[in-house]
Design a binder for these strands. Structure first.
Lengths: 108, 108
DNA sequence: CTTGACGCCTCGTTATACAAGGTATAACAA
DNA sequence: TTGTTATACCTTGTATAACGAGGCGTCAAG
């Protein structure tokens, strides 16, 4: 479960340039070294959510083979949001690690 | 929002020894260097959840001033779970960081 | 005698990840 | 021709979870 962090990694993946939903799934599988294998039922609604929030915008396009694709790109607002979310993640992950590591067993 | 990681840090906090709900909130505020200030409406249900899952167990106790407290302690199952969750967190945070950091801007 | 800290609790709202299912096209094999 | 697979999009429903808001009771300090 990525609860709450899915949006971040989607935005981050788009920082590398416009992409479409199906391709993002592969991108993230590759970027995460196989850790994330996101189902479509997770990704597509998330993209719609992000577009509704104006963090990304879409346009129809076509693959070399002629298949239709909805290409997504970061908006300016999305870039700003991504920057914030990256430092949020940095602080958050540090805090969690502190909590997890600080826990020395009870000195019985 | 700690989505999904709350249980982990609660279990981790209990690795240091038995504690009660209200105290855990302060522990985690301290451990996280102020980052986590968990509302009671978040912590108590989580503790009940963990107890239901037999990862922790509780008993009534009293503070030095005589106030009643429900003390929680890790079960053996809880220790095992915590170990797993710590490596889960390790892998997860690494994967997220990979996704966030790998994203180089589009070479326009 | 009221305020605030301690300490526990529950209920309702909201967000969201995901499974399950559906559509359509291209390429390739039987 | 007729699957079957990979590409590519979508929606609906369900389960979970964090948390705000509220309530209960005790004790100490003003």
């Amino acid at each position: 479960m990525l609860k709450g962090h899915l949006d971040n990694i989607l935005l981050a993946a788009l920082r590398a340039g416009p992409a479409h939903g199906y391709g993002l799934i592969e991108d993230l599988r590759r970027r995460s070294e196989g850790h994330f294998d996101l189902p479509e039922g997770t990704v597509y609604p998330a993209l719609h959510r992000l577009e509704l929030a104006r963090l990304i915008e879409s346009s129809w396009s076509h693959s070399p083979e002629g298949r239709r694709r909805r290409m997504y790109a970061l908006t300016r607002k999305g870039v700003t949001a991504l920057d914030e979310r990256q430092s949020d993640w940095s602080r958050f992950s540090k805090a969690v690690s502190l909590c997890l590591d600080d826990a020395e067993p009870c000195p019985s």
